[in-house]
């Protein structure tokens, strides 16, 4: 899922400073799962904003709403007829959500409350770890389902650098060396042969081609 973290209050406050009527919109999908933009976080942020305004003697009107998914128009539509009663939308969606909401309401200013961080996995409650960089050219099949692009600090395709020691990465001793994992897993699976192969340079054009990437599934598209 896509993970995100709330921006520092100072940044949010600065962006909101000129506005009095604020619609705080959460997203019930990924960011709810990583506890940064769901209904609860919307409640907390709204409460904090109201208090902040009170402390400064300002009066603001904050409305809280959380929609199922901020990146799908059908759900964003729930804001229609409500959004225009506010001066600004504070979105607790990922970057995609913020932009989708903005697209639906062309005249409204939409600002993000979150920093979208990565595609990750919930390791344990309260711990999310990045494990995919959406490179568009998945090679996990050769690397025993450990992504070197994401999980090796240098994105090495052909074995660990010289900094790997005791199974951890020299860049972040709290992270396992991705290559250590790859090697172990391939050895366990009896596929050490894959370790001897030289992998050619990656095709990064799939990740950053011409503007935003698109996927088209013709069978899923509707006629109308």
């Amino acid at each position: 899922m896509i993970t995100a973290e709330r921006k520092p209050m100072a940044e949010i406050r600065a962006m909101l400073a000129p506005y009095r009527k604020i619609l705080v919109v959460g997203c019930g999908s990924c960011v709810a799962e990583c506890a940064s933009g769901g209904e609860k976080e919307v409640g907390l942020l709204a409460s904090a904003l109201r208090m902040d305004a009170k402390i400064e003697g300002r009066t603001i009107e904050v409305r809280e709403m959380t929609i199922d998914r901020q990146c799908v128009y059908e759900f964003i539509d729930q804001l229609t007829g409500i959004a225009d009663r506010y001066e600004i939308i504070l979105s607790l969606g990922c970057g995609a959500g913020v932009q989708a909401v903005a697209e639906v309401f062309p005249k409204m200013l939409v600002i993000p409350a979150l920093n979208t961080t990565f595609i990750g996995e919930t390791k344990e409650p309260g711990l999310w770890v990045e494990n995919c960089r959406a490179c568009g050219d998945c090679k996990l099949g050769y690397f025993a389902a450990v992504c070197p692009v994401t999980r090796c600090a240098k994105g090495l395709f052909n074995g660990p650098c010289g900094g790997s020691k005791n199974g951890v990465c020299e860049v972040d001793p709290d992270s396992p060396c991705a290559w250590q994992l790859i090697i172990e897993r391939l050895e366990n699976a009896g596929r050490s042969d894959l370790l001897e192969a030289i992998y050619p340079p990656a095709d990064w054009s799939r990740q950053q081609g011409k503007g935003p990437k698109k996927i088209v599934r013709e069978d899923q598209r509707s006629e109308g």
Binding site: K40, G43, L44, S47, A48, R50, M51, K54
Partner: peptide, 11 residues
């Protein structure tokens, strides 16, 4: 206890 309880009490 939830975070919201605490914040709402102060609010």
């Amino acid at each position: 206890i939830e975070l919201l309880h605490l914040l709402r009490a102060i609010e």
